[in-house]
Simulated assay, not measured.
Amino acid sequence: MATSLRADRLKLAVFDMDGTIIDSQRMIVAAMNDGFADAGLPAPSTAATLSIVGLSLPVAVARLAPGLTEAEVDRVVERYKQAFIRLRKETGGEAASPLYPGARAALERLARRDEVLMGVATGKAMRGLSHALAAHELASFFQTLQTADGHPSKPHPAMLLDALAETGAEAEDAVMVGDTEFDMEMARAAGMTAIAVTWGYHPETRLRAAGAHHVIHGWDELDAALALSWGEV
């Protein structure tokens, strides 16, 4: 049984965005294909592109095509950004990328708990995250936003360490919820509990191998995983 001291302490739940809260794979794959094509390079497979979602763009492109020079990586990254902006205008962008079923209800349940703060740690740039939050009216849920703009790529723990610093939560009272091995590795590096979701872009076997403490198969399982993580049961 958790002590009342532990139960009353501030808690932090940090969420990945792509593949966890919103299903943006169509936009990501299309932009990556266009980015490689515009740079005169063969596009990676869909599976390969989804395998690197969550990494910052330069790291992702270098992993997809390890033979590229730094200048070629920069060119693909720039073409990807241009393609994403174009696709956002043509398709509605993040507004056309649906929330996973149950996501909003789960966030609403957490928002009603006074001792719980929430945040985002994403490989998106702040501009892209802002579009996603605005498109789905999610901004009010989160007290800390960590993006690829000012941090090393996942799985470096910098985003989570900054989230802890901004909110005042302790690592032992914080969780990271994500769909990729990069999220799991980042959480463990920051001393936080790693909660993996299986509806995103990395398979369960990969998530477990990366050190997930808990694995959930639907948003309705989040509350129980949090209770275990926070010593509430």
Rank of each mutant, 00 (worst) to 15 (best):
M1F: 10
A2Y: 10
T3A: 11
R6D: 10
R6Q: 12
R9K: 13
R9Q: 13
R9H: 08
L10H: 08
F15H: 06
D16I: 05
T20I: 06
T20P: 06
I21M: 14
I21D: 04
I22P: 08
D23A: 13
D23Y: 07
S24A: 15
Q25D: 11
R26M: 08
A30Y: 11
A31Y: 03
A31L: 09
M32W: 02
N33V: 09
N33F: 11
F36Q: 00
F36G: 00
A37Q: 14
A39P: 07
G40R: 06
P42N: 02
A43M: 04
A43H: 01
S45I: 05
S45D: 10
A48D: 14
L50T: 11
I52S: 14
L55C: 14
P58C: 11
L64V: 04
A65Q: 08
A65F: 00
A65L: 01
G67M: 08
L68F: 00
A71P: 09
E72T: 00
V73P: 00
D74S: 15
V77H: 04
E78W: 07
Y80D: 10
Y80G: 10
A83T: 09
F84C: 11
E90P: 13
E90N: 07
T91P: 15
T91W: 15
E94A: 15
A95W: 08
A96G: 13
P98T: 08
G102C: 13
A105C: 08
A105R: 12
A105D: 12
R109I: 12
R109P: 11
R113P: 12
R113T: 08
L117P: 00
M118R: 01
G119K: 04
V120R: 06
A121H: 09
M126R: 15
G128I: 10
S130H: 15
L133V: 10
L133N: 09
L138R: 02
A139K: 13
A139F: 07
S140M: 10
F142D: 00
T147I: 08
T147E: 07
H151D: 06
S153Y: 08
K154M: 05
K154P: 07
P155I: 01
H156I: 05
A158N: 08
M159W: 08
L164M: 05
L164Y: 03
A165W: 08
E166K: 12
T167C: 06
T167I: 06
E170I: 03
A171I: 02
A171L: 02
D173L: 13
M176C: 07
V177R: 04
V177S: 06
G178L: 05
T180G: 14
F182C: 05
F182G: 01
D183C: 04
M186P: 07
R188H: 13
R188N: 13
T198I: 07
Y201G: 02
T205Y: 03
T205C: 09
T205S: 11
L207E: 00
L207K: 03
R208T: 12
A210T: 02
G211A: 05
A212K: 04
H213G: 05
V215K: 01
H217C: 03
H217T: 05
D220I: 09
E221M: 07
A224Q: 09
L226H: 11
L226D: 09
L228S: 09
S229H: 03
W230K: 05
W230N: 01
W230D: 00
V233E: 13
V233Q: 14
